[in-house]
Design a protein around this nucleic acid. Structure first.
Lengths: 209, 209
DNA sequence: ATATGTGAACGGCTTCACAGCC
DNA sequence: GGCTGTGAAGCCGTTCACATAT
């Protein structure tokens, strides 16, 4: 399959899920997996898995399945996850500090270099594995360290201002935990994670009294 | 518009976003809003906003727009957010404890009654506003308190077992922070929030060296 | 004049179903 | 026999465009 066909965003997202499943299979010493087995672990239909993989190559052996390790490495490559990716975090409140302590990021190849906060002096740095600086130095730091990704955990009222700063400094992707919709230029990608909205959304589906 | 037409999940999700925007408008004393203004604040197209609202009624005045307060209340009603919703959290690790301290849930009408952990004795409860119990009591607690929603923050290897317990006890909606795909019966809704995957997904869209 | 409500067109992702290969 | 790869069909949500209402 050739590169001219764009890979749909949704497919990209699922690639990450597949990679997690493959990682577990690899750890368990499994060398080959069928589309139906992997699909079920990832919560999708077999045909969809095969279509997703077909966007960037042919890896399977008919009658057999996919080689776990090769497939995993290829997916990582496609996702651009060959090397450690530097990240900054803005807003060291409750949530921000928790994310700084969260080891899932590093384990997956992201390095949070530093945190920034409007009032760094009031932050209890004792259990945080990275330095917390004042917002003032944000733009310089991003430029100096060629940071392209940022995590935003500031209150709603500061979200847009922070995003503007980040974009001006060269950030291209933002993981936004602030409960607002950020307005950014087209070349910048934002993923919004609003925990209260996720809960609210779920609550629609439970029985009412 | 009648109730026979199912509201798409994505539309439901957007209702939550609209409600946040409307809340801000209300706080600023704005009484009427057009579909284009509200849509732009919510990051969607005007036609989509109108379609979403049309799923459950007609609220606008042609030539004028929508009454902010009425619309907000109606959306809250549709979302089933009339009263406080009890929630339990399972897994009081870094992320779990941060979520317990996060005030966004309560502010939006969710009450985390208690947390459960495999090793509650090792948890530093000092800064957590709810009790942390042993996993043993999970099912009884859920039944006694008629809990229908749960937040899961346990390591991947325990995720499915915890989910099974929750479902058996009567939980109908799960917000899953564990990095696995939970297998649940059809009547149970799961929303997955995998922070590492979100980052990974974003990293696909930044320039490579 | 202006903005909603909505049938119809559109587009894109998902699923099917089967040909092709091991 | 079993499983992948893929064109074709199907489905669902989005967007358009205009009739409708104030």
């Amino acid at each position: 399959m050739d590169n001219k066909v764009e890979i749909p965003r949704k497919a990209i997202y699922r690639l990450s899920i597949y990679s997690r499943c493959l990682k577990r299979l690899l750890e368990n010493g499994i060398e080959t997996v069928s589309s139906s087995a992997l699909a079920s672990a990832a919560g999708v239909k077999p045909a969809q898995l095969r279509k997703d993989l077909a966007y960037f190559g042919q890896f399977g052996t008919r009658g057999l399945g996919y080689p776990v390790e090769v497939l995993l490495n290829t997916i990582r490559e496609v996702l651009g996850r060959a090397k450690l990716q530097p990240v900054v975090l803005v807003g060291a409140g409750n949530l921000g500090r928790a994310l700084l302590r969260y080891d899932g990021f590093r384990k997956e190849g992201f390095e949070v270099l530093a945190a920034f906060d409007a009032k760094p002096d009031e932050i209890d740095e004792s259990r945080i594995p990275v330095p917390v600086y004042s917002d003032d130095g944000l733009e310089d730091f991003i430029k100096e360290n060629k940071v392209r990704m940022a995590i935003v955990c500031v209150p709603a009222e500061h979200g847009q201002a922070v995003a503007n700063k980040l974009v001006d400094a060269g950030v291209q992707a933002i993981l936004n935990f602030s409960p607002i919709v950020l307005q950014v230029p087209e070349h910048v990608v934002v993923t919004r994670v609003d925990l209260a909205i996720e809960l609210e959304n779920l609550s629609f589906f439970i029985d009412r009294d």
